[in-house]
Design a binder for these strands. Structure first.
Length: 496
RNA sequence: GGGCCCGUAGCUCAGUGGCAGAGCAGUGGACUUUUAAUCCAUCGGUCCUCGGUUCGAAUCCGAGCGGGCCUACCA
């Protein structure tokens, strides 16, 4: 009988038969113990058979039916518990057991005992279906391995794969730890607009959407920066936000069009203060989430305790690449150098783009253990304050771990005249065809002209931090619902 | 965007030019302490799609769709 349509029809039929007896989707259940609590209560009672009465609930993950008795495993959020059904104990409801399928949710009442094979079990005295499932769960032994199915139907992945549940828990723990870290330090958690007049604070193409009533377009934010700075201007001294940003670019194991960004701004701090805070923060998160200050990554062990290695942008390039970028002040010269080293340089690439390409090709992959890279070229950093003793560099650092950027921070540029000039410089590049540069944001400049205190700012890609903490190689594994291409809807079995 | 690989039953996978297969799940039967329960029987297919080669295509070729990995882009 079973095509997919027929499996579905069978379950629909079972649902009908259950509904003739009772509600198969009751609004209220009476759980007295979670699976974990049931086990604990039984242990506490000295494993006295029949002494601990419980009502447990959960999803059926396995059925072992043997004529006049049956064992079912159910799982709830805390773990598994086994249920034992005997015909002589259940009078008439034993006959309804065939209406139960894998994936259904049950409520079962009985007393705890240990079977002769050692499994702590509920001797069921009464039970009912509290949710009838119409489609089967993934295979019980191999689970769900098809990567596409795991992403598109993450609920099946979570049902089948403990590792996926673990990654999800880790991510939650990372975000919670970060929030605690900042709140404990007196930072105020704020929310700023997702829909913006223009998307700034980073170099990336934005998504555009349309507001019907106002009959105008909005851009989805690509960073949190410019609004958080407006709050500094308003007098809030320490703010942070953890929020989704959107960048209209490719999808890969390292990029998702929407991702979670943490940004913080602290008045009267500079980028050295921020670096010290980041060291503390990474170690704190690791300890809270992993219970350790190191994490395995393939063959490597990454050490996440302070202090982290420190270098500068210029020195790192010199050491790894053997040249001083200051010796190549023109796009032409730098492009020649890059091509000599075997880099393919896009025809329209600017000086800053080529330099960055050199950096990401030759330096970043080598920064496996946590390493701060200080003092970026001004051209790459239109929102950072210039170094006083070096016009060509800004007070900015990035933290690299495992070869990719985990944090990005600077002493924030607060001179409105310089900021305007730097934004206009970027606008010039845009006019020359680079559509991934900062726009001049007049509304932000107006705010800045009212005075922003000196401040240290920080941005951290949460998804990548979670990747670091879980040791996962693909960003898509740490995002519950990664962006996927559209696929023709399969109409399944419903019309069978 | 480029390269390589993958797409077969609800799930996990064999099959690589000659009748479309196994395990799990499902269905029927036996079994009142099992746990990947066991045993017997049984149902189940748009072999991703379209086109081509061939007496014959899941298998070979081309195009497309979807996915994975690498790479590039993405401060």
């Amino acid at each position: 009988m079973p095509t997919e349509a027929e499996l579905y029809a069978q379950r629909l039929e079972k649902r009908e038969r259950l509904l003739q007896r009772a509600d198969a989707y009751p609004a209220r259940v009476r759980r007295t113990h979670t699976a974990a609590e049931a086990h604990a209560a039984f242990a506490e009672a000295g494993e006295a058979e029949g002494a601990v009465a419980v009502t447990v609930v959960g999803r059926v993950t396995a059925q072992r039916v043997m004529g006049k008795a049956a064992f079912l495993d159910v799982r709830d959020g805390t773990g598994h518990v086994q249920l034992h059904f005997r015909r002589d104990r259940l009078a008439d409801t034993f006959e309804d057991l065939p209406l139960v399928d894998l994936g259904d949710f049950l409520e079962a009442t009985g007393t705890m005992f240990r079977t002769r094979t050692g499994e702590v079990t509920v001797a069921v005295e009464s039970w009912r279906v509290i949710t009838k499932a119409l489609r089967p769960p993934p295979e019980k032994w191999h689970g769900l391995t098809d990567v596409e199915a795991r992403y598109r139907q993450r609920y099946l992945d979570l049902m089948a794969n403990e590792r996926s549940r673990e990654i999800a828990r880790t991510r939650i723990a990372v975000v919670a730890a970060l929030r605690r870290f900042f709140v404990d330090r007196g930072f105020l958690e704020v929310e700023t607009p997702v829909l913006q007049d223009q998307a700034g604070g980073a170099a990336a193409r934005p998504f555009v959407t349309h507001h019907n009533a106002l009959d105008r377009d909005f851009f989805l934010r690509i960073s949190l920066e410019l609004h958080l700075k407006r709050l500094l201007i308003g007098g809030m001294e320490k703010v942070f936000e953890i929020g989704r940003v959107f960048r209209n670019e490719g999808v890969s194991t390292r990029h998702n069009p929407e991702f979670t960004l943490l940004e913080s701004y602290e008045a009267y701090a500079d980028y050295e203060d921020v670096a010290a805070m980041v060291e503390e923060m990474v170690a704190y998160v690791a300890l809270e989430v992993l219970g350790a200050s190191h994490v395995a990554y393939g063959e490597e062990v990454i050490h996440l305790a302070a202090p982290f290695a420190r270098t500068t942008y210029r020195r790192a390039l010199q050491e790894q690449c053997g040249f001083d970028y200051r010796d190549y002040p023109t796009t032409q010269a730098l492009r020649g150098l890059a091509q000599e080293r075997g880099l393919e340089v896009a025809p329209g690439a600017s000086w800053a783009t080529v330099l960055d390409q050199l950096m990401s090709t030759f330096v970043e992959p080598k920064l496996v253990q946590p390493t701060f890279v200080f003092d970026y070229p001004t051209e790459l950093s239109p929102l950072a304050k210039r170094k006083v003793d070096d016009e060509g560099a800004v007070e900015r650092f990035e933290l690299f771990v495992r070869g990719f950027e985990v944090a990005n921070a600077y002493s924030e540029l607060n001179d409105p005249v310089d900021q305007r000039a730097r934004m206009q410089e970027q606008a010039q590049k845009r006019a020359e065809g680079d559509d991934e540069v900062e726009l001049a944001d007049e509304d932000f400049l107006l705010a800045l002209e009212h005075g922003m205190p000196p401040a240290g700012g920080l941005g951290i890609g949460i998804d990548r931090l979670v990747q670091l903490m879980t040791g996962e190689h693909s960003l898509r594994e740490v995002i519950l619902f990664p962006a996927m291409r559209e696929r023709a809807r399969e109409d399944g079995a419903t019309d069978g």
